[in-house]
Design a protein around this nucleic acid. Structure first.
Lengths: 356, 356
DNA sequence: CTGAAAGCGCTTACAG
DNA sequence: CTGAAAGCGCTTACAG
């Protein structure tokens, strides 16, 4: 047997159980360290480290012995120390406006599952919809020294983009499209969605379309595409209600009367979210407007329930799950040394559930 | 002026800009350290540390000078090092089955907002609905040395509960109720919800109720309350369909015919989630059953849209936002030294939207 | 109000 | 396959 250290009997309790107090100068006893495991297994700390990080470089007997001690003691490595020492935090930051209203939550779900299968953990940073504190948020995130960052394509300020370019870690922007990504990109064009919805309305011979939307960056991009395509078709007057996020059913409900004041002959509404669309649908019911025959309504997000409960609505479907998975793979490829630059347009689809 | 160190002129570039290479033995240049800031500001590293952690103990002039250097250099402290050194990771772990299907996502949203306002960051750990890998997940979480943990009341194995009791950090369990919490608890009784829904059905003179539910721990507790209360009323035969999570509209739709095979005179269904309830509603429409007059349907979760789109459904409302906020406060109180034990029952409400 | 020394618990980079 | 030394970038616990 190679190197059976004396005093490393399998049944021995902690080596020198009472002779240790001198060493711990700072706090009290803070829990088990790699040295405790090493002592009891009769190996050097380095070997215990290898058991966790490079088990294939350790002799089978040693491996087994150390693992038993780890199990018996309930030792859990300290990754603050490990990360500091190795410059590998095994942490990935995900910066998202919100997970409460679920458009992004499935992206984060899949992203997180994929990253954790690869041995990384996700630090969740909620940015809200305001840019105000983004610098502070970024500081907080970077202070953890993540190895990669997922951004939800909120319009970053120039200063922020600049900082992110300079940190030298892989970054994926998602849920948006641009010609000048910080690094990698998995998303789609909100502008093109606006164009597509406009064309959808035009095909339906809509003449007086309106728009209800939150005034966040991406919703406004959809609006721009919508307006410009309609302008090409000669429609320039577009009733519009912009609201602050978060949008909701109630907000949508309140918006329809306002739109109809602006445009009494309103015959279509493009809504910034399915929740808004459901609100507009409810309001149109009260006003006795048939949907979609008298009023076409298009939402955004394709919430699962909507197909069943509100087949009169059209919506725009985006595959958030696909975005999450792809973004994770992009980061992992980079982290594993594959040097690629990726811009993936995952596209979107207009879903008409029922033509009545 | 106190202690104006020589060579600390405000416009000087990095002190000894080229004379440093000897020191960095391990990796390449890894970025700015506190020593870089200290050198340029003409103070000791300790003082820079104070500027971040105890600014009130630093002389105003020094504070200002250091902050300018920090700004100019773009220095961001390394919290891996800080956490290791101080045993304060400023990290809180949140363990949640999933955030994709949104019952928990608003709890996490509010929890995260509250914690970050207090200077903590949230490490998100998705456990899925299986207990299988929970030990590994807990290891991963504990390896970051969080200062507190939020659990979403999945039935933890005994071994897990034992470990959590022993880690000696504040823990809040949420979304459930028990007589033997690990530490603090903010939730409600799923069993009592089942009882309440049974009573709701009994009031409506229901005679042949059924149940569709995912087979996760908490849904099963609701089922138990439901069945036992019905048994007290003399109803023992209860049609039942149990499915694996995640539940969905499609699953609910498929379940109704199965229930009706078991109980052809079915006149009520308690569903494990609003999505299931929407599916059951859709299926009953196809079968020509009027809801709620011929078939009462009760969901769980009170999704926002449902009030508007499916007023025929009854549901159980739980305030996820309140849970998140309260859980955060419990942890923060503990972290700030207030030694309290908390069990909060936030309750629930049965919401009948329309009596037809 | 400020600083020099020691230590937090790991891993790197060698050496054997 | 294994280990001793040095270092990762901070903060604690003093001392002045």
């Amino acid at each position: 047997m190679p190197n059976p250290k004396p005093g490393a009997a399998d049944n021995a309790d902690l080596a020198e159980p009472t002779a240790a107090p001198a060493k711990r100068a700072r706090g009290g006893p803070k829990g088990l360290r790699i040295a405790d495991v090493a002592a009891q297994a009769g190996v050097a700390p380095m070997t215990v480290s290898r058991v966790f990080n490079n088990p294939e470089t350790v002799a089978p007997e040693t491996l087994e012995r150390v693992r038993q001690v780890v199990q018996k003691l309930g030792y859990v490595p300290n990754r603050l120390a490990g990360g500091l020492s190795s410059s590998r935090s095994r942490l990935i930051a995900a910066i998202v406006p919100t997970i409460a209203h679920s458009l992004f939550s499935e992206t984060i779900q899949v992203f997180s599952e994929t990253m954790s299968r690869a041995g990384y953990q996700v630090l969740l940073a909620l940015s809200g919809y305001s840019d105000s504190s983004e610098e502070a948020l970024l500081d907080a995130v970077l202070s953890r020294r993540p190895e990669g960052v997922l951004l939800t394509g909120v319009a970053h300020t120039d200063s922020l983009r600049e900082r992110l370019r300079n940190v030298g870690m892989p970054i994926v922007e998602t849920w948006d499209m641009t010609d000048t990504p910080i690094d990698m990109l998995v998303g789609f064009s909100h502008y093109e969605i606006g164009v597509a919805v406009a064309e959808h309305f035009l095909q339906r011979k809509v003449r007086t379309p309106g728009l209800v939307s939150a005034n966040d960056e991406r919703a406004l991009a959809r609006r721009d595409g919508f307006r410009e395509r309609l302008a090409q078709a000669g429609i320039h007057e577009i009733a519009e209600v912009l609201v602050s996020p978060p949008s909701s059913v109630a907000v949508g409900k309140a918006a329809l009367p306002t739109l109809m004041e602006q445009a009494p002959r309103l015959d279509a509404v493009f809504c910034g979210s399915d929740l808004l669309a459901i609100g507009v649908l409810g309001a149109s019911r009260r006003l006795g407007l048939a949907v979609p025959s008298q009023l076409s309504i298009c939402g955004f997000g394709d919430l699962e329930f909507a197909t069943e409960t509100t087949p009169q609505l059209t919506t725009v479907r985006v595959d958030g799950t696909h975005i999450g998975r792809t973004a994770a793979r992009c980061l992992l490829d980079r982290l594993e040394g594959r040097d690629k630059v990726v811009v993936t347009d995952v596209g979107f689809r207009i879903v008409e559930r029922e033509t009545t």
